[in-house]
Amino acid sequence: MVIKLKPSKLNHMKAKEIQELIDFISNSGLAEVKIETEEFKLSIKKYSEAPAVKFEAAPAPVAVSAPAAAAPAPSPAAPAAASKEDTSKLIEIKSPMIGTFYRTPNPDADAFVNVGDTVKPGQTVCIIEAMKLFNEIESEVSGRIVKVLVENAQPVEYDQPLFLVDPAG
C-alpha cells in the first residue's frame, strides 16, 4: 500500500509525527506502507515485534507514483506474515486523559498487567497521574494483553492508545 501525502506536508514532518504514523500503521493491520515524495522515501514494514523503519533521503527526484526501487519488495513470505500479524481484531485501551502513565501502583510494586496477561472489564491496567491526582484506569474489555504501547513514567495524551488487547486471547 502506498499512502500519498502532499509533499509540503511531508517535508515538514517531525520525528513525533513520524512516530505517530508508525504507531498508526502498526495498529492498522497493514503489513507494509511506503511513502514517497520528491524529498524522501519512507518505507515501513511490519515484522513480528516492532515495525521496521527505513527512512532515507531520495537520491534524485522520483515520480511520486512510481514504484520505489529502494523500498523492500514484498517477499513471498509476506502474505503469511501479514495474516499472522493481523492486528485488525485487536482492541486498544486508550488514555481517557492527559497525564503521566504508570504501570505500577507504586514505585516498588509489580506492573498491574504484563504482555500475555488476561484482563477483564473493570480490572485496573495502569495509573495516569495529572496535577498530583492519581487515576486508576480500568479495562473496558476482556482479552489478553498483546502489547504495552507506552513506557512507564512517560507523558500521554488524551485518547492515546496504551495497550493492545486481543479479545480472542
Binding site: P96, M97, F134, N135, E136, E138, E140
Partner: peptide
Amino acid sequence: VLIENSLQSQWME
C-alpha cells in the same frame, strides 16, 4: 492531600 480516582471511561467512578 492525596486523591486516587477510579475512572470509567470519560467519567469519574
